[in-house]
Design a protein around this nucleic acid. Structure first.
Length: 524
RNA sequence: GGCGCCGUGGCCAAGUGGUCUAAGGCAGCGGAUUGCAAAUCCGCCAUCGCGGGUUCGAAUCCCGCCGGCGCCUCCA
């Protein structure tokens, strides 16, 4: 099996070959920390977290870097609005970002470099670019000279003439070419500022990624990731300045994830509200309404902070949702779709409970292999069951090998779930009778397989904490009492009372399950 | 105007030349189980936007059309 990865640079799936054998370096463009993270900010980290998990599993030593951009126009503006120091705002928002990553189970990132801690590295690159003739200072700013770079535009496939024709690039007489972008910007009063050979200023937008990527991962890295929206101009410019500086290929594979979308005719979440600059006036009122509708959606759901979102949905549900579709496709964000994932997860959680009832073992304590080469084929149970599971593992890995197809892989997880449930059902293992040793053995190994594969997409790794802790003890005691009373009613065939109790509980979102070995309850 | 993406069952979604009369999920329907439920299991439920073409063979490649979307604006 060979891993294939879609490369934006070639627009093809390519066999995965690393710069250094056995090692993979990943740089993912991180957030500008100026406001609380929304769901869209989680997409990249979750996807590349899964990418790293898989690469690690198939034997690579992976270094994963996500930058924190803590100096930028948006940040400065918001700090002024909130009457805060830029650094204080950045610090607060960085914490918010980290908290959210943590909740989402993104724990594979090795370095979070800060832009403001790499100013010197940026200045070095800028100087080098000027020396090599790829950049020029202009009134305290420094611009990259796009005309000097033959390869400019190769990532996003556009040429400079077309860009001019597009005419959205505003003419700026002093720049040599309208598309020349700032490497260094002179700073105004009150703005964060660093000394430089061209006067006090601050970095341009793209330079920090080049500087930190090169510093931490080297001049040529394996994977550079980010949202599709960053392809141009950010990645194009990053690529240009880096390669002109080092003379080496900057990144082997460019991976771009699709964007989260709020609703049908809307743009992306938290994005623009209107195209004020657009001169097209063909829009009628209907269109306006549609876009308002979409923005409302964005405003109430998607653009809401991740923290708000987590009040409604468990982070694992969101993670599962994000990975259920292919990373390059756009995902529509809406409640119904996420609720469906919630149900999906419930099914797995019930299996875990069932597993514990039968074997007395905790699913979350199972310890699967962490390397593909150490994976062993299952054996010992009914042939067709064991064969199905072994085949399922192969198909899961094949999906992941095909450009990290987490959607296909997760589909296989469902099949494994059904297989195991079916095995349990056929042997009536979860009906109060004692399973024998070999059945338990088979169950443990098949559940361990499920844990092994789900660890690659980073779900089901630790128990989800049950919400509401304060009233738990009392609730538990009350439920025990209610169930006892109902059991009496049932045993004396007083089903009217029994059903009344069950229906009543249903109304307060408590579901009762009468199993052969007793009644259990859960909050929905 | 330029660059690019997408269109698979009621909905979500994998599959991108033969194993596809198309995985999986949600919803629905029928059955097993149950006092009835719940949970679980079994079964049913699509020819792949439209029209041409290439090929022994296409959801998968090419052309055209229709429909949706993104970027070209420091939005991840």
């Amino acid at each position: 099996m060979t891993l294939r990865v879609y490369n934006t640079l070639s627009k093809e799936k390519e066999d995965f070959q690393t710069v250094k054998p056995g090692q993979v370096s990943i740089y993912l463009c991180g957030p500008t920390v100026y406001k609380p993270a929304h769901i869209g900010h989680m997409v990249g980290p979750v996807i590349f977290d899964a990418v790293k998990r898989y690469l690690t599993y198939i034997g690579y030593d992976v270094t994963f870097v996500v930058n924190i951009t803590d100096v930028d126009d948006k940040l400065i503006n918001r700090a002024v609005e909130n009457k805060m120091e830029v650094s204080a705002l950045a610090k607060e928002m960085t914490k918010d970002y980290f908290d959210n990553l943590d909740l989402m189970g993104v724990d594979t990132i090795d370095h979070f470099p800060y832009a403001t801690e790499h100013i010197q590295e940026m200045l070095d690159i800028i100087s080098k670019l000027i020396d090599k003739g790829f950049a020029y200072p202009l009134n305290g700013d420094v611009y990259f000279d796009v005309n000097k770079d033959e390869g400019y535009g190769k990532l996003s496939r556009r040429n400079l003439d077309d860009m001019l024709a597009g005419s959205r690039v505003e003419a700026n007489d002093s720049k040599r070419h309208p598309a020349d972008f700032a490497l260094w910007k002179s700073s105004k009063e009150g703005e964060p500022s660093w000394e430089s050979p061209w006067g006090p200023g601050r970095p341009g937008w793209h330079i920090e990624c080049s500087a930190m990527s090169i510093k931490i991962l080297g001049e040529s890295i394996d994977i550079h990731g980010g949202g599709l929206d960053l392809m141009f101009p950010h990645h194009e410019n990053e690529l240009a300045q880096s390669e002109c500086c080092t003379g080496k290929p900057f990144a082997r594979y460019w991976m771009h994830n699709g964007l989260m979308q709020a609703g049908k005719s809307s743009g992306k979440i938290g994005g623009k509200h209107s195209k004020e600059g657009d001169i097209e006036e063909t829009d009628d009122v209907g269109m306006d309404q549609a876009s308002q509708e979409a923005n409302k959606l964005a405003g109430s759901k998607g653009a809401a902070s991740v923290k708000e979102l987590f009040k409604i949905f468990h982070p694992e549900t969101i993670r599962f949702f994000l990975l259920s579709t292919h990373y390059r496709s756009p995902i529509e964000f809406n409640d119904e779709l996420i609720k469906e994932k919630e149900k999906n997860l419930q099914g797995f959680y019930r299996l875990f409970e069932s597993f514990e009832r039968i074997t007395g073992q905790d699913f979350y304590s199972l310890t699967p292999v962490t390397l593909r080469e150490k994976a062993v084929k299952l054996s010992g149970g009914p042939d067709n069951f064991i064969n199905e599971l072994n085949h399922a593992r192969d198909r899961f890995l094949q999906s992941m090998d095909d450009d990290f197809n987490t959607g296909g892989a997760i589909g296989v997880l469902f099949e494994i779930r059904s297989q195991i449930n079916s095995y349990i059902g056929q042997g009536k293992l979860d009906s109060g009778t004692q399973a024998n040793d070999s059945e338990i053995q088979v169950l443990v190994s098949s559940m361990t397989l499920l844990k092994e594969l789900s660890s690659l997409v980073g779900v089901f790794q630790k128990p989800i904490e049950t919400s509401g802790s304060g009233d738990d003890e009392l609730t538990g005691q009350l439920m025990e009492l209610i169930i006892q009373i109902r059991a009496h009613a049932r045993s004396s065939k007083n089903f009217e009372i029994a059903d009344q109790i069950r229906d009543g509980l249903n109304n307060v979102n408590v579901t009762l399950e009468d199993r052969p070995d007793g009644t259990i309850w859960r909050k929905d």
